[in-house]
Computed example of a mutant assay.
Amino acid sequence: MTTTMDPSAVAADAVVLDDIDARPGSTTSLLRTLIGLYLRTLGGTISSAALVRLAADLSIPTARARTAITRLKQRGLLIAAPNASYDLNPAAVPMLERGDRRIFEVRTMRAGDDWTLVSATIPETRRDLRHQLRSRLQFLGAGAVAPGLWIVPGHLDGELEMLLDEIGARSFATLFRTADPRPARPLAEAVSAWWDLTALRAEHERFLTSVAALDTSAPFAAYVRLIDSWRVLPYIDPGLPAELLPADWPGARSVATFEGLSRELSGRALQHVQQCTTG
């Protein structure tokens, strides 16, 4: 007899939703942010009813919330548990911990800090890996110096090693550390070619516009939306030295805005979640 497997039944070691798989502001992204913020604090389990109630506090209708929850189960972030509840997939914890470091421990280079260069030669037979490496390096905040050669701030060296191991590309890559890269033109000009600063500026402006509209009288919804809007930026913006960026660069303003609102909202938001899940 042939048995059809429920697509929502995902093994605990299945591939889980990656850090920026879901578009910020979407229903799936907001729930993924909610889960990343609070499910570990709640012991890794939440009832279906509580999750739907919290979604309602984010102005997500019940039907849309249940559809998004199903999607998160299919992608392996959540696992169905007894008593109409959900467990956090243990395989998602390293991803969430990586996100914690990026989101809440913002780092910026200073003049003279180390850089790491990555030279990777991947055979034609592994074009899939080549594409994956390129997209993941962009997500890490790497600049493209030349085909097969990328550069990242030295403080991202550990994450770079993890990325290469995670996707199986370490054997194709050689890493170099330097505090003195010497392009043929001034370093600030080279940086503007290695990174798409226009796109990065647009992301900062998007973030600043989105948080200006937050209703801080509803701290839970405001905090989840703050994190959801912010969480992409610390990945794609590597934190380049101010000396190498335009004078009106909005990065410092974004960081200060995020940190100030986070301090203001996080405690009250957690109280709301605890009341909602224990009542």
Rank of each mutant, 00 (worst) to 15 (best):
P153Q: 02
R126Q: 03
F139W: 10
R102H: 01
T121Q: 09
Q138M: 07
D100G: 12
G143S: 11
P153W: 00
L149W: 07
R107C: 03
L140K: 00
P94Q: 01
W150Y: 13
L129H: 00
G112Q: 08
M95A: 10
V152Q: 01
R107N: 04
G143E: 04
F104T: 08
A120T: 13
L129E: 04
S135E: 11
A91E: 15
R130S: 06
I122G: 05
R102W: 03
G141C: 06
T116L: 12
F139I: 12
H131C: 12
V145P: 15
R134P: 08
T108N: 12
A169G: 15
D100Q: 08
F104A: 06
A144K: 06
D128F: 05
E161Y: 01
F104Q: 04
R126G: 02
R134H: 12
P147Y: 05
R98V: 04
R110K: 11
G168I: 13
V152R: 00
H155F: 12
L137W: 01
R110G: 14
Q132K: 09
Q138C: 11
M109C: 14
G148P: 10
A144H: 11
M162Q: 13
T108L: 14
Q132M: 01
R110Q: 13
S119E: 08
G112E: 06
N89G: 14
R130P: 14
A142T: 02
E97W: 14
R130K: 04
N89K: 04
T108S: 07
S119A: 05
R134D: 15
A142E: 05
A169R: 07
A91V: 15
A169L: 11
S135H: 03
R102D: 00
P147I: 11
N89S: 14
R110Y: 08
L160V: 02
A142L: 09
L117P: 15
T121A: 10
M95C: 10
D165W: 06
M109V: 12
A111H: 11
P123S: 04
A91R: 10
F104M: 05
M95R: 13
P94F: 03
A92E: 12
L149I: 05
V145I: 09
A111K: 10
E161F: 01
E166W: 01
V152D: 02
W115N: 03
P94Y: 03
D113N: 07
V93F: 08
H131Q: 05
S119I: 03
D114M: 02
V93L: 13
D157I: 09
G99Q: 05
D157V: 11
M162Y: 09
R110V: 14
F104R: 00
G143R: 02
A169D: 13
Q138A: 10
L160Y: 08
R127W: 04
G148I: 09
D113G: 09
Q132Y: 01
R134A: 06
E166L: 04
